[in-house]
Simulated scan of single mutants.
Amino acid sequence: MAFWQITRLRVVYPVLLVLLLFVDGALMAGMGGIFTAFPWHVLPVTTLIWLFYGVQFDVEADLPFWLYTVLVGILFDMYYTGIFGTYTVAFVAATALMKQLKRVLDERLLSGATIFLIGLVVYLLITYFAGFVIGIANVSVATFLLYEVLPTVILNTIIATVGYYPVWSLFQFLR
């Protein structure tokens, strides 16, 4: 593999990761009225989707994937919440679980969607639990699962599924 090919992936992956960090906020700001229409609360998590693609298409061999995961979690905490650690732990735990599930499941679309689904639910549960401990999550678990987790899982699984093959092709081109 030529040096310029390794460099392309090393540059493109983290740049898109940081860009998607801001896309999450832009989507929520621009479409907040739709995403938070009572009683639903949908969270776009394109950053986690990009980390999922990194796990699914094995970018860890080409770049410091875990460092990027921790850094994007810290940036997410600093930029969006101001509470250090919640999203850092959520990103690392969800990504680690997706990495472990990747060992069992293969690279087919349905297996990938299952891996992402489980990682997303873990991510949402960690952020809910942290909010509950801090005192900012004041809804029951059933309400949280029905009105936040379910619509968030539907939206983000569709986004991850639609982008699956184009991102796979992009990674093949960058390698």
Rank of each mutant, 00 (worst) to 15 (best):
L150T: 12
D106L: 03
G135M: 05
I134D: 03
L109G: 07
L120G: 15
K99F: 11
T7M: 15
W40T: 01
G112K: 13
Y80K: 06
R8H: 07
A2P: 15
V141P: 08
Y165E: 07
G32D: 03
V59T: 15
F38I: 09
V139H: 01
V122I: 09
V89M: 13
L145W: 03
P44W: 00
H41L: 05
F76G: 14
L63K: 05
A90L: 05
E148N: 04
S140Q: 00
T36E: 08
I136H: 10
P39Y: 00
T95D: 11
P44D: 02
L105G: 10
L109M: 05
R8N: 07
V92E: 03
V15L: 03
L75R: 10
A61G: 10
A29Y: 06
F116M: 12
V45N: 04
K99E: 10
P44G: 00
A90Q: 04
Q56T: 13
E60Y: 00
L67G: 14
I49S: 03
E60P: 04
F144L: 10
E107K: 10
A61P: 07
L110R: 01
V133D: 05
V59G: 11
A160E: 15
V55G: 02
T95N: 02
T95F: 00
I6H: 03
V89D: 12
L9A: 07
E148F: 02
W66Q: 01
F65E: 12
V23D: 09
L63A: 03
V141R: 07
T47L: 00
I115E: 09
Q5E: 15
W50D: 06
M78D: 11
V23L: 07
V59N: 04
V104K: 13
Y13Q: 05
V70G: 13
A130E: 11
V70S: 03
F22M: 01
L21V: 09
G32P: 10
T127P: 06
I134K: 08
R108K: 13
M1S: 12
E107A: 12
L16C: 10
I49H: 04
R108E: 09
D106P: 11
A93Q: 08
L109W: 05
T86R: 05
G135L: 00
A130M: 09
R108S: 09
A61M: 08
I118V: 11
L20N: 05
T7A: 15
Y68C: 14
L48T: 04
L124E: 08
M98V: 06
L43S: 13
L110H: 10
L21G: 14
K102H: 09
T86C: 11
L63C: 12
G119P: 11
A61T: 15
Y165Q: 03
L97Q: 06
V133A: 12
I158L: 14
S169M: 02
L67Q: 13
L51G: 07
F3W: 04
V15I: 04
A37V: 09
F57H: 05
F65G: 14
V15A: 12
F173Y: 06
Y53L: 08
L17M: 08
P151G: 02
W168C: 14
Q100C: 01
I74F: 12
F129R: 01
T157S: 07
Y164W: 12
L20V: 08
